[in-house]
Structures are given as C-alpha cells and as structure tokens.
C-alpha cells in the first residue's frame, strides 16, 4: 500500500494523471525514482538509501550543501535490477490507483482504513491478505463526496476508521 499512497501523493505534487505514474520494482533501492520526458529521455536520481539526503535537499533547497555522509560506490552494486510490480498479488497497489481515479474523499477512506487494518494485523487480529479486504469493504461502505472541504475530510477520516474497526470485530 505504501507505494500506492506514494503514487497518490505524486499525482498532486507533480500535477499528473494516474496513467502517468508507474511503479517499478528495484530491489537495490539505489535509483530513488525517475522522470521520462516527452522526447523519451529519462532522468533518474540515484544515491545510497539515506533519508538524510532528501531531508537536507528539502531544507537547503534550492542549494545543495556539502556533507560527509557515506558515498555511493558503483562497484558495491555491480548490477541494478528492475522487475514489474505484480498487482495481481499485491491488491493494495491497484486499490490505491482505483482510489486515485475516483478521487474526492476516496483516498482519505483508503488511508484511514489502511492504518486501522495494519494496526489490527500487527496486533494479530487479522491476517496479511485480510488487510486488503478490510480496506476494500470500507471504501464500499463510506459515503462518496466529490469535492470535499477540510471538515469533510475530518469527518470522512473518522467514519472510515469506525467502519474499518467494525469490520475487524465482525
């Protein structure tokens, strides 16, 4: 689900359509993401997986600041590999895209139900695969609002958590 939520964030941050956002599995986590422009050229941002780098970039923007954090060495990662994300196995990713296409308060429901389901899983109250069922059913049961205001989001978050909780108890 995490990648699905990131796709929703990317849609808003970069003003994209859902079909412009792809997920690529890259087990080494060296390429942090990529942009393909309309000439087909791709830019990839790379580095060691160290959260201090994006934090420093954001705080220092637009300047890059010198640091002594560990440096990447290509010979430590002689092969960078890529795989297709298997949405048939990981239903959460396709659910997140569906929520993104529906828009309105659906991503809000998705987020709330996901948090409740994850918590239940960690406490041993539901299985791994059931988490997806809880999220899907919660989306089905919550009322749709096409253009929510801030207070609509607060109310949707509350409602979705309540619905998801009741599904776990059931």
């Amino acid at each position: 689900m995490n990648k699905g939520l990131e796709a929703i964030e990317a849609r808003w941050l970069f003003n994209l359509k859902p079909e412009q956002i792809e997920v690529v599995v890259h087990p080494q986590s060296i390429i942090h993401s990529m942009v393909q422009f309309e000439d087909g050229s791709i830019k990839a941002q790379m580095g060691l997986p160290d959260m201090r780098l994006p934090i420093q970039y954001a705080l220092g923007f637009p300047q890059r600041l010198p640091n002594s954090f560990p440096r990447f060495n290509f010979m430590d990662f002689p092969s960078l590999t890529f795989e297709q994300a298997d949405v048939s196995v990981f239903r959460n990713l396709s659910m997140a895209y569906e929520a993104m296409r529906q828009g309105g308060n659906v991503p809000c429901v998705l987020n709330a139900a996901n948090e409740v389901a994850v918590e239940a899983f960690l406490k041993g109250k539901c299985g791994f695969v059931e988490m997806s069922c809880i999220i899907e059913q919660t989306i089905g049961k919550c009322g749709f609002i096409a253009s929510p205001t801030f207070s609509d989001y607060v109310e949707t978050d509350r409602e979705a958590r309540e619905v998801a909780q009741s599904l776990i108890k059931a």
């Binding site: 792809e22 599995v25 890259h26 993401s33 422009f37 791709i42």
Partner: peptide
C-alpha cells in the same frame, strides 16, 4: 513529463 517511475524495493 510523459510519465514518472516510482521505484519500490518490493
């Protein structure tokens, strides 16, 4: 932008 590719460790 034609598209973006979010990488996932899997």
């Amino acid at each position: 932008v034609e598209k973006i590719m979010l990488t996932a460790s899997g």
